[in-house]
């Protein structure tokens, strides 16, 4: 392999609990990983597994309960808001829903211009507008849309605005929270290609949060699978798809419908049950209730997340 890359982001035993009337909700529970510069980490899981909360906690949009976030060598877990503001130049986010993440009262140019204004990057409006136009062409938005409002545009174009806004400050790192799941397939492919091109040309590092395994395989170097806030499995993208170890990962993979006529009528193994509540979870493996291979031990003892093969981490008693 090539030379050691620099670690850009390190998340160390990160926890995010929400205090609800019914008890502590363990949204993110003890998550640890590193991302090297220029890599993409895919974070996969079903609704309620804590993937979006994880993204927001890393960006300090939500305060963490415990653990550390180290960005570019600096522990940012508890830095004050003025330092955080400066850091946000390097850390951006693209949201899932291009319909609700853009202010309906702002024009396209105002939306893209806003981060430039806040961070006072350019001296005057003319320079800022120059940059806005440049960004619009980078993301493939025609210049004639400068003065339009988000509601006049379709989902694909709106998501391009979200991308342009995230790129405005030349960040190093972007969290993409389901950026394509609200889009039609043909538009989804356009946005995915755009994001991959941008990554190459601007040297970006991504965390790509999604529930869609085929998308994540396409775009990620490494993949982290979450289940009810816990890390379940992490390895490089190819290994995860060729040789998944955790029963949950296996179930997720077989659940994807394959667009191939030879799969017709094939009885895939369908996982029973549904995701259990993340509020005051019982001890033991969180997946035990749905796991076809669960034993007594799984109900009592939480499995440790450890490396069972080189660069292949899994949390399951089967691999003890």
């Amino acid at each position: 392999m090539s030379e050691e890359r620099k670690v850009l982001l390190e998340v160390d035993h990160l926890k995010k609990y929400f205090d609800t009337p019914r008890g502590m909700l363990h949204a993110v529970d003890d998550v640890t990983f590193q991302i090297e510069e220029g890599k993409t980490l895919g974070v996969v899981g079903e609704s309620g597994c804590g993937k979006s909360t994880l993204g927001r906690t890393i960006l300090r949009l939500l305060p963490s309960t415990d653990g550390k976030i180290i960005f570019n060598g600096e522990d940012i877990t508890h830095v004050d808001s003025s330092r955080m503001l400066a850091l946000r130049r390097d850390m951006q986010i693209i949201f899932q829903d291009p319909f609700s993440s853009l202010d309906p009262k702002m024009t396209v140019s105002q939306i893209i211009e806003e981060p430039l204004k806040i961070h006072k990057i350019y001296k005057n409006k003319a320079e800022r507008m120059e940059r806005v136009k440049e960004l619009m062409s980078i993301v493939g938005l025609d210049e004639r849309y400068v003065m339009t409002y988000p509601h006049e545009l379709d989902g694909g174009r709106r998501q391009r605005i979200g991308v342009a806004r995230a790129l405005a400050l030349n960040p190093k790192f972007i969290i993409c929270d389901e950026p394509v799941s609200a889009l039609d397939v043909s538009i989804q492919a356009q946005i995915l290609n755009l994001m991959m091109d941008l990554k190459d040309s601007m040297g970006l590092t991504y965390i790509f949060i999604t529930h869609d395994l085929s998308v994540v395989k396409h775009i990620s170097d490494d993949i982290l699978v979450l289940y009810l806030g816990k890390m379940v499995e992490m390895t490089d993208s190819d290994t995860l798809f060729d040789k998944p170890l955790h029963p949950y990962t296996k179930a997720l993979l077989t659940a994807i419908p394959v667009p191939d006529a030879s799969y017709k009528g094939k009885e895939a193994e369908v996982m029973k049950g549904e995701v259990t509540s993340p509020i005051e979870p019982p001890p033991g493996c969180r997946f035990a209730a749905r796991c076809p291979l669960a034993s007594e031990r799984c109900l009592k003892e939480s499995p440790e997340f450890k490396e069972v093969e080189p660069n292949h981490f899994v949390a399951c008693h089967l691999y003890d």
């Binding site: 397939v185 043909s186 538009i187 989804q188 492919a189 356009q190 995915l192 290609n193 991959m196 395994l213 085929s214 998308v215 395989k217 396409h218 775009i219 993208s237 190819d238 798809f241 993979l253 994807i256 394959v258 667009p259 191939d260």
Partner: peptide
């Protein structure tokens, strides 16, 4: 346009 789960392509052809 579909990212294929069974084979890895470098780019989608949208």
């Amino acid at each position: 346009s579909l990212p294929n789960i069974t084979e890895r392509t470098s780019r989608l052809t949208p």
